[in-house]
Design a protein around this nucleic acid. Structure first.
Lengths: 166, 166
DNA sequence: GCTTATTAGTTGCACGTGCAACGAGTCAAT
DNA sequence: ATTGACTCGTTGCACGTGCAACTAATAAGC
């Protein structure tokens, strides 16, 4: 033991990251759990990848969107969206239509068949979410949502540039 | 309009998923934001992938662990861990030592060099976490942690089988 | 009008990852 | 001892994804 100071041996080792308490780690585990469980619904039953599901969900919600909007909104890389869009178009689930005002971009929308899938999927997704959060009271759900919102807003400032995989 | 009932046209369309309110989506976006920001630290400065960082962090915290433990604990696929371990071993950051009691498994530990990296990384990871959650009060942080814990426990029951990417 | 910078979207490439199949080791039953 | 079920870890394969470079279109500077 050091004679001069009362330093404990613990002080000589640097701080440790306790993974069970480490927020980025915990968030990723929880996000993966929810993502994978949800993916079983849209992957096994409709053959949709995660990005494809997001494109369908965005167009189901918003009617018309450009690929760029979906990428920014869904926080995905533009190449990821590009490939998901190409795949969905090959399957006849979405249609693209050039924007006459700016011919660089294309407006995307669900076809009738795509909307059928969305309308089959949406209730199941909502039902899953309900099961998922059923351990929390409504008040806790509301609180969690607001904490996530504040953290997300702050995190986007910390990582300012562009798209982030979601 | 239907003459008999006061049904609105809205009622004819199926329910929609509002992505901005959809918890699996929001969780994934937030997890990605934190993950990517954190990855800048250990990727750019130490050349570690996410799984490699998790192996190092686990061994930094626990001293000895098997690959299987790390996979289960870190919620990763065993092949993912296997490759991260192989890569870290090639770089001389971890060492493996067969378990004499059960020669199927190998005990992993950080080498001196691996520990150096961990000790450089851990304070930065903790500092990042602090910046990340600094928008929340301590009480809110504590609350968020408990909500995440309860959701994670519940989610593991919903998706019972095995490993989940983190 | 021309030149340069910027933006939407695509694609080749490299790489990380999940899956399934496999080898090696353990354990239980007989 | 032998068989069969199970577990730890590795690896071939296919595929999804990020990155950077590219095309086409637009916008800005002059």
């Amino acid at each position: 033991m050091a004679p001069q100071t009362a330093a404990k041996t613990q002080d000589l080792s640097s701080p440790r990251v306790i993974l069970e308490h480490f927020l980025p780690y915990r968030l990723n585990v929880l996000a993966s759990l929810s993502s994978n469980a949800l993916a079983q619904i849209y992957a096994e039953r409709f053959g949709l990848s995660i990005p494809a599901w997001r494109v369908v969900a965005t167009l189901g919600q918003y009617e018309y969107r450009t690929a760029r909007d979906i990428a920014a909104h869904g926080v995905m890389h533009k190449s990821t969206v590009s490939r998901a869009v190409a795949s969905l178009e090959r399957r006849g689930l979405i249609a693209r239509r050039p924007n006459k005002d700016d011919r660089r971009e294309e407006l995307l929308e669900l076809t009738a068949e795509g909307r059928d899938i969305y309308e089959a999927l949406a209730p199941e997704a909502l039902a899953f979410e309900e099961r998922f959060v059923s351990v929390l009271t409504h008040e806790e759900q509301r609180l969690l949502a607001s904490l996530i919102d504040r953290l997300s807003g702050h995190a986007r400032q910390l990582a300012p540039d562009g798209e982030v995989e979601g």
